[in-house]
Design a binder for these strands. Structure first.
Lengths: 189, 189
DNA sequence: TGGTCATGCGTACGAGCGTACACATCATGC
DNA sequence: GCATGATGTGTACGCTCGTACGCATGACCA
């Protein structure tokens, strides 16, 4: 995407690559989105970042560490948008609108790989480090919603958002923005 | 669980094991629940079923085939309960009650491995055969809901159920049956 | 300017994997 | 009772994997 490897053509002298660690985390997310956590091996990530295999163990103590950092970045990115949209809303109606935009906009933005989130959920089921990442993310979402809604509503809306997102992600016949709006407004208005 | 291998103690003469194929599918689900799809290897499943490795390739053409059959059984089981509960409901109120029971009952039943469903979703993202399984399951759920609700409501409730289920599955602080009832009734009444 | 250490690179090792395949054995039908 | 084919079993092959490790190099600072 952005910040490509320096001179991808000149293979010989590739030394001095600051931000390589960051690039590797980005490459990991790319590989996970494309091949899943199962396909995210050291070698595959290194290939995606155009970096030698040995570089992986230098920058990360283990595969686990790479996954944790990658998913943390993923969750932080989504949570930030969530925060910003809801913080900008001044009335309850604007907050409802923000939620609609979040779901419909998130779903429809082609660059946003929904499958990454599901991959995180599965991985978190067996990896305490990743479980902590998802928990923190959920808490952050709920806090953002509680700016405008009572805790019970916030929790329920959070679950609804989850379901709408997942359903659209998995269906070959995804819900239209209008349907998403309808579902959310039915619940919140 | 039930239907154990014949005479698990006598290891030598274990031949003549009808239903072995069925047992293997069950063992596969067990392994997936415990170690995930990533950990569901021929060897692991064979070990869980107390069967030699060679038996796997005899009964299944590939790992893919085992996964497809296992997840089909999983989805069918849940869908059947779904169907039955909703078919038994005679009024709209009873239907609402049935949905509450399905979610809260499903979630709370300790034997029911929720993680299996998430595993299916992730696997389906990259496996057309499994994608077909999830699609058929979703359609069946929606059809069952449409016995009592209009199509739009059915779809939205289906998504809500998904979200409630997933949220409870992932949270260390799962929603109480009362909370689940509250969310569903708020939407349907 | 020269030394040093963070960083980069290539390769090797042992383990687990899917799958293939040759051989053993017994239920079944004649 | 016996032939036969379905079913069961053990092992081997080639591959990818995570990780370790020794050596190379050049950025940075005294």
């Amino acid at each position: 995407m952005s910040d490509p490897a320096p001179t991808a053509t000149a293979r010989r002298t590739r030394r001095h690559d600051p931000h390589r660690r960051d690039r590797l985390i980005g490459a990991a997310l790319q590989v996970i989105a494309q091949r899943g956590v199962a396909g995210a091996s050291h070698r595959e990530i290194a290939r995606a970042a155009d970096v030698p295999l040995g570089s992986m163990t230098y920058h990360f103590a283990s595969l686990d560490e790479i996954l944790a950092e990658a998913f943390t970045r993923h969750a932080d990115g989504i949570a930030r948008v969530f925060d910003e949209r809801l913080a900008a809303a001044r009335t309850r109606d604007e907050a409802v609108e923000a939620v609609v935009t979040l779901v419909a906009g998130d779903l429809l933005s082609p660059g946003h790989d929904l499958v990454l989130t599901v991959e995180l959920y599965v991985a978190a089921a067996r990896n305490p480090r990743l479980k902590a990442v998802t928990q923190a993310w959920m808490q952050r979402s709920r806090d953002a919603l509680e700016r405008h809604f009572d805790p019970t509503t916030a929790r329920e809306v959070d679950a609804l958002i989850e379901g709408l997102t997942l359903h659209s992600a998995l269906s070959t016949d995804p819900m239209s923005p209008a349907q998403i709006r309808h579902a959310i407004e039915r619940y919140l208005r």
